[in-house]
Design a binder for these strands. Sequence first.
DNA 1: CCAATCCTTGCGGACCGTGCAATATTTCTC
DNA 2: GAGAAATATTGCACGGTCCGCAAGGATTGG
Lengths: 204, 204
Amino acid sequence: MGLRERKKQATRRALQEAGIRLTLERGLENVTVEEIALEADVSTRTFFNYFATKEEALLGDVPATPDEQVRQAFVDGGPTGDFVEDLITVLITFLVSTEDLATQRADMLLRKKLTEREPQLVRGLLARFHNVEVELAGAIAERTGAGPDDDRPQLLAAAGMAVMRHTMKRLHYSESEEPADVRAKIREALRHLGEAFAPPARED
Amino acid sequence: MGLRERKKQATRRALQEAGIRLTLERGLENVTVEEIALEADVSTRTFFNYFATKEEALLGDVPATPDEQVRQAFVDGGPTGDFVEDLITVLITFLVSTEDLATQRADMLLRKKLTEREPQLVRGLLARFHNVEVELAGAIAERTGAGPDDDRPQLLAAAGMAVMRHTMKRLHYSESEEPADVRAKIREALRHLGEAFAPPARED
DNA sequence: CCAATCCTTGCGGACCGTGCAATATTTCTC
DNA sequence: GAGAAATATTGCACGGTCCGCAAGGATTGG
């Protein structure tokens, strides 16, 4: 990676960190883009070369872009063949990025504090989740071979994302949470949903 | 209702209609608040007395505020005693407001066109759904007597709202859709979720 | 008809976000 | 290493959103 690329990454992180720090200190309304840029030693104009909006700088990169390999494996009916288990695999890749665990947990904590202090930020997060949901629905449709008129994949994707959001909220990333634990938590949630909504031997 | 109140309602509607019409004609980016206000014969400043943002004027009032009576009945274990059926009852009140059906369908159609032409508007809608979701989670927690540490109500609420959003998308409000049909559609979706996620006689 | 109340409006201003052209920095080529 | 090409940063100007404030109008109630 050349010097140029490294500098860009550094600037990007500096802007994000400055934005997050200032927002936690004073609240989103009391922080201007100008101040964030100043703090990161770049011009205001440069800020907008990196982020389209002030919010975007704060939200980071979650949920992670779906991994293409994982997606393809899922579409092809893998990795286990069991729909629920494979769905969980995909969901996990959404919330576990390629970075190292320590950084990821730190980010998670920061974002938690941020959204608690500034609930408006939840809007942006929800929008991102929605984008991922659309992707997921497409993958499910491909895997199951559902036709374009069949909207059940969308339903399953919506429910799956709901479970994922729920699980994210439950994660206390300050303590150690191994991927296996995450999988178990998602599995438990899906199971609970199934039990709550499954038709209990209906007499119809 | 006095003259003052009637005028306010009229202005509010005029602003909404002007905003929607202009947006459908030219796209959200090519419509300024100034133009909307002009069209409704008020000043720009007055627009912001009615709506905090340009988006807000377009989104209308959906999802409807949860009906307090329905909520209380649900919390008390009613109206039927069956959790799923009662949940459906609550969900329906979210998407069926107190207005007459004709107006409601017209609004629905307009909003559908709007969000298709301007996907950015979906952000705002999602945020509103999220607020309702929080309310619903509270109601479920009260009904089931779940403790504050029990987050299953939140999970059920999230899944319930996912089903409701999904059902809204499926509704073609141009043709007649009786409330009973809506109920059946939601029931079917919940059932499908249950079957997809229910543990199929696991051997553990 | 007068006073209280509420709404509208204009004005000034802070801030966000963008297009453009100039300048600076890195990278490539020889 | 020098110059050219590619890319990043920056300043500037501008349109637009949204808000606080204070003045003027309309509606209401007595």
